[in-house]
């Protein structure tokens, strides 16, 4: 049917946290306009970006997401007055924290997509999918999840000695 469609060795898992009023509606519009985009994204609907807890992003990575998208209403358009303003601050801080502990921020995308921006939704999702696909799987959290027990190096002589005596 689509012989030109390239096959990839790796298909990333992308999780999108979106608000119901703008970005979810924007994604709906992409659908009603029959725009096409990669099928890698799974959408989780929230009332507002203000509801999105940073822990969910962490949890998504731990559950094997290779990329995470957070998207909501443009500033000033929030259905709940100011939820997106609070989210903007929260995520500005959180992404700095993730960056500091070594998460590649190319895997974490934030966007404002309005209910009228079906095209922007397609663009954002496609771009993130392609970027993450070229980066390969998010191995850091997956490897971490596979490690059992204390993996800290026994790097002092006295610890080593004590360990060997056990």
């Amino acid at each position: 049917m689509h012989p030109e469609k390239p096959k990839h060795d790796f298909e990333p898992k992308i999780i999108a946290f979106v608000c119901t009023w703008c970005t979810y509606a924007g994604a709906d519009l992409a659908g009603t306009s029959r725009m096409q985009y990669p099928p890698n994204v799974r959408v989780l609907k929230f009332p507002c970006t203000g509801r999105i807890d940073p822990v969910f992003i962490l949890k998504a990575f731990q559950q094997g997401a290779d990329g995470v998208l957070v998207s909501g209403c443009h500033p000033g358009d929030c259905h709940y007055i100011a939820g997106n303003f609070h989210a903007r601050r929260r995520f500005a801080a959180f992404r700095k924290l993730l960056e500091f502990v070594g998460v590649d921020l190319n895997r974490l995308q934030f966007s404002w997509v309005s209910a009228a921006e079906g095209g922007k939704w397609v663009e954002v999702v496609t771009e993130l999918t392609e970027k993450v696909r070229s980066m390969g799987p998010m191995v850091e959290f997956k490897e971490l999840a596979l490690e059992e027990q204390w993996s800290g190096a026994i790097d002092t002589p006295e610890l080593k000695e004590a360990y060997e005596q056990i």
């Binding site: 303003f85 903007r88 500005a92 992404r95 921020l105 995308q109 966007s111 404002w112």
Partner: peptide, 8 residues
Amino acid sequence: KDDQSFIK
């Protein structure tokens, strides 16, 4: 006016 340079 908070920074949103990281938001697409």
